[in-house]
Simulated assay, not measured.
Amino acid sequence: MGTRKKGLEFAKHITEIITKSTGFENQLNKVKILGGGDGTCCAELKVDQDHVNVSNYLHTGYIVTLVDMITTYALMSKPCHPGVSVDISVNFLKGAKLGDDIIIEANLAKAGKNLAVIDCTLKNKKDDSVIAKGTQLKYVNFE
């Protein structure tokens, strides 16, 4: 299967998970999954009123949620059960304002028998400036 087709199928699958969710994944209902597969996931978000703090900047808690979920989706593109978070860290480098378009890219950096490290970067689409960088360590069960 070609990489492009695989990425589109992956994006469709993750989008279905988000849109059908009645749980926490529903918080990502305005995130557009652009593609992924083979340990990656790429998404886009237009910063909306639902995502900002009182100063109209993208809320740090929402940034952590994006890192958590998009890295998990990247991991789900490999044949494994993604398990639970062991550790998550995020460095906040620049603010994103209400109305900004951001790109979220996650990549499986390393996978062992029971642990996986997934990196994530959030960038402003207009100037490619880095908003935040995160890493998640997840307990996994590879099939």
Rank of each mutant, 00 (worst) to 15 (best):
K113Y: 08
I103H: 10
Y73I: 04
L93W: 03
Y139K: 03
G61H: 09
V117L: 08
L122C: 09
V130N: 09
S85P: 03
I131S: 09
L28N: 04
L75D: 00
N141I: 13
A111Q: 13
V47W: 09
C42I: 01
T135F: 04
G95D: 11
A106R: 03
K123Q: 04
N29F: 09
N124L: 13
V54E: 14
G37I: 13
I88Y: 00
V31I: 06
V117Y: 05
K133C: 12
T60D: 11
L122G: 01
I33P: 00
E105W: 03
T71Y: 04
S129E: 10
N124C: 07
D100E: 10
D87H: 03
V64N: 03
S21L: 07
A109V: 12
T71F: 05
T40F: 06
L75S: 01
A111P: 05
V90H: 01
K30A: 15
L137N: 02
P79T: 15
S89P: 09
L108I: 10
V52W: 05
D50G: 02
C80M: 06
D68S: 05
S21M: 05
P82F: 05
H13V: 01
M76F: 04
I103R: 03
E9Q: 13
N26D: 12
S85Q: 05
K113D: 10
E105T: 10
A11W: 07
E9R: 07
Q136W: 08
A116L: 12
V52K: 00
K30G: 13
Q136V: 15
E25C: 07
S77G: 01
K125W: 07
K123L: 04
T15M: 06
D87Q: 08
V47M: 13
I18Q: 04
T121P: 06
K78C: 15
D101Q: 15
K46S: 05
K113Q: 11
V47S: 08
N124K: 12
C120N: 04
K46F: 08
P82T: 06
Y139W: 10
K30W: 10
V67D: 00
K6I: 12
S85F: 05
H51W: 05
Q49Y: 10
D127Y: 10
V86S: 06
T135E: 00
C42Y: 04
A43E: 12
D128C: 14
N53R: 02
M1Q: 14
V90E: 01
L58I: 13
D48M: 12
K20T: 13
T40A: 08
T65Y: 12
L122H: 08
H59E: 15
L98I: 14
G7P: 07
L122T: 12
C42M: 02
I103S: 10
L45G: 01
N26M: 11
T60S: 07
K20L: 09
I131P: 03
Y57V: 15
K6Y: 10
T121C: 14
C41S: 15
L8P: 00
Y62D: 03
T19F: 03
